[in-house]
Design a protein around this nucleic acid. Sequence first.
DNA 1: GCACATATATGTAAATATCATATAGTATGT
DNA 2: ACATACTATATGATATTTACATATATGTGC
Lengths: 122, 122
Amino acid sequence: MCKTCGCSFRSRDFGNIERFIEPCILLLLSKGSSHGYGLMEGLEKHCGEKVDIGDLYRTLRRMERDGWVKSNWEKNKGGPDRRTYTITSEGKDFLRLASSSLIRTDKLLHRFLEGYQKNQSA
Amino acid sequence: MCKTCGCSFRSRDFGNIERFIEPCILLLLSKGSSHGYGLMEGLEKHCGEKVDIGDLYRTLRRMERDGWVKSNWEKNKGGPDRRTYTITSEGKDFLRLASSSLIRTDKLLHRFLEGYQKNQSA
DNA sequence: GCACATATATGTAAATATCATATAGTATGT
DNA sequence: ACATACTATATGATATTTACATATATGTGC
């Protein structure tokens, strides 16, 4: 069942931040290095939505494999050690490309929503 | 390789219309019944992007299974017969829900792009 | 010791995406 | 008649992504 709208059809959620998780992560990391759990909190704070933490960790490892981020373990007095992620120059390049893609997505959405509202009022 | 940005990392494309294919199809169908090939042309015309035709046909069958559309074969003098799709009331309900999700997505994107541009100028 | 928050990671199954290929009717040019 | 192109639907095979559950471990407060 869809998490957001509650429809019984399928799980796909068109308003889900997880569809744009990588650019969001890279944007946060471009403001400062962080670790998985911290990014989860940052994403929830900035996007107002829960993210699947397991998914997030796997996404981060995939992003590291892809060269967008690099990580290293850091000691943490107040809890378990953390794997801290830092954006790479390749990650910055990708963030730039993803942003222009997202501008296109934004235009697409506007066209859709205009079309939808026109349809509703007709 | 990503179709849009050409990056070598992975195929994910944040500007891809196929991420919102179902609402787009339902919007087109809410303006009038159509068949797979016709929807492909409609999507390309309204969204300026090619869609994978195989994916589109499978998506339509899935949407029928989910109850959002129904289909019937229609004779076509000028070519092969067509499977014509019509939106159902369940499909209209879903379109309404998807639209409010997409409004949220739109806000999310704006927040992201604002954050990105602020970051760039800093 | 126990519960709870922090912190990372993986197992598994289902859903989707990607790319190629199969099949067939109609139209047009040679 | 034959080749080619366009229209039209569909599926095979594989890879990727998503969803949900579970495992593991550290530190804090009671």
